[in-house]
Nucleic acid binder design. Structure first.
Length: 504
DNA sequence: TCTCTCACATC
DNA sequence: TGATGTGAGAG
């Protein structure tokens, strides 16, 4: 498509904040520009700034790709945010999830991404609980919140709690801030939370990089890949040696992606994700930035058959290393790519343009937050909430399951077998975390295409035009639940009481 | 042809 | 030790 068509365009928010998005283009701002605003109980004033936004935008402009492997691969750039506006003494839980950005499957051909069919069934939606959760507002705001430990996998049976994605599908990471205040009725309809997303963090999951420019950006900016930075011919020699071929050798990727487009199907570029989010009234709020105009071929996603949420606790908790992305290296030109790809003025616009996020991104509904909250005394570790990848408009499903995996060796081979599926139904009273997990994967695009994304309130949830979010009451997670165990929390409709059970 | 997995070298 | 991209080879 013309203009903007070559990259994700960010839709205009309906509830535009006074903060100027453009001021958020720079990383390490001091102070950074607010990305979001929440208004519900105790959540008003919360703002989130994407760290290294410029880097994200660099990738976004080309069409961010994230490698997914069976063992799990970290995201790069890593997702780091600066949060402000939290009550210093109140406790919050920060979660991240990655939801489908649309209902399509993509392919990279002719140096551009294009839709090649309908998306595969969504993977079990999982939420990544920041290892520091729950923590006080003071804790979250005094430093950057890094989700660098989060890993992406294509292993549908992943026992490590990594976020499961489908290759060649586009996703949108989201951040959820849940107030874990005992007086806040955590896990109940009173749970206050905010959801934030930065459109420039959208990406296509791949098992191997497709766009050479992305490979270059990764190598250039990821310290862990500096081994591939080499200078000039040094690398060629190295590669030649490896391949036992005569120098010079052109990396396969270079060949395959000789003509590298500069545009991205993630249109919107720098413009996106910079809009401040605002939450509407209500106890719970969700704010998101939307991705631009809906793709021409955009089609409504099918309801996801799965409706469960899995909670995962990683068994390891390391000091949060700083994101390597922060290192910016100047380096040589990419490989031998002599192709014009580097200056491709002839970049082919992606056939797809991200659709707007679904307005029904509901407040989080999961006992998970609770669990995290309860585990404060215990080990703080990354926690994954997995569930299906329901559409945003189906968040009302009330059956949720949470699993906290043990060490890899102890994890069940069928992490999702404990999930139960129940027909969609809405209940006016449930915890909102579950909804987070739920929303977990609704094609954002779909939602957005229906209405401009806006924040939602959770209170007694009321969405005349959308299924009400799943409101359920959850039992607190047993303290022992933390990391080492796979447990499933079965929640029943009607705000039913969740039950813990060992995974089968 | 396309996608994925693996062993590998590097840091 | 673990994270990274590479590239051959499998499916």
């Amino acid at each position: 498509m013309a203009n903007g068509g070559d990259r994700f365009s960010i839709p205009e928010r309906v509830d535009i904040d006074t903060d100027s998005p453009k001021e958020n283009l720079r990383e390490n701002h001091t102070p950074p520009s607010p990305q979001t605003t929440c208004t519900p109980q105790g959540m008003e004033g919360i703002k989130v700034y994407l760290h290294e936004q410029e880097l994200w935008e660099k990738f976004h402009e080309v069409g961010t790709e994230m490698i997914i492997t069976k063992a799990g691969r970290r995201m790069f750039p890593c997702y780091k945010v600066k949060v402000t506006g939290l009550n210093p003494k109140a406790k919050y839980i920060l979660l991240m999830d990655v939801v489908p950005a649309d209902d399509h499957r993509y392919k990279f051909a002719d140096n551009k991404w294009s839709v090649t069919g309908k998306a595969e069934p969504a993977m079990p939606g999982r939420l990544y609980l920041h290892p520091d959760s729950p923590a006080t507002g003071n804790h979250w705001t005094r430093q950057l919140v890094s989700f660098q430990k989060l890993k992406l996998t294509n292993n549908h049976l992943d026992p490590f709690g990594h976020i499961i994605l489908n290759s060649m599908h586009k996703y949108q990471p989201r951040l959820h801030i849940v107030k874990a205040d005992e007086h806040n009725g955590f896990g109940s309809k009173n749970t206050a939370f905010c959801t934030h997303l930065f459109s420039e963090t959208a990406f296509i999951a791949v098992t191997s990089y497709q766009n050479h420019k992305i490979t270059q950006l990764k190598i250039e900016n990821n310290p862990f890949a500096k081994g591939f930075r080499g200078s000039d011919d040094m690398e060629l020699h190295r590669m030649a040696k490896i391949q036992g071929k005569e120098y010079p050798v052109v990396p396969r990727s270079s060949v395959r992606q000789r003509v590298c487009p500069t545009g991205s199907l993630f249109g919107g570029g720098a413009r996106g994700g910079l809009h401040p989010y605002s939450c509407e009234n209500g106890v719970t709020s969700t704010t998101q930035d939307l991705v631009a105009s809906p793709p021409a071929h955009y089609s409504l996603p099918q309801p996801d058959p799965q409706e469960h949420v899995q909670v995962y606790h990683s068994n390891k908790r390391k000091a949060d290393d700083s994101c390597p992305a922060e290192e910016h290296h100047l380096y040589r030109k990419p490989y031998t790519d002599s192709s014009p790809s580097e200056d491709e003025s002839y970049y082919h616009p992606p056939a797809y343009s991200p659709p707007p996020l679904h307005p029904s991104v509901q407040p989080p509904h999961t006992g998970l937050a609770d669990s995290a909250y309860r585990s404060e005394a215990g080990v703080r570790q990354p926690c994954m909430f997995a569930g299906s990848e329901p559409r945003l408009d189906e968040l009302s499903c009330t059956t949720w399951s949470y699993s906290c995996p043990l060490t890899p060796a102890m994890t069940p081979t069928e992490p999702y077998t404990t999930f139960s599926h129940q027909p969609y139904c809405s209940s006016p009273q449930n915890s909102q975390l579950s909804s987070i997990a739920h929303q977990g994967s609704p094609p954002l695009g779909d939602s957005l295409s229906h209405s401009p994304y806006q924040t939602q309130s959770s209170g007694p949830y009321q969405t005349p035009q959308h299924p009400s979010p799943p409101f359920r009451e959850y039992h607190r997670y047993p303290a022992s639940l933390s990391p080492p165990h796979y447990l499933t929390l079965h929640t029943h409709n009607r705000g039913g009481v969740p039950e813990w059970s060992e995974p089968t």
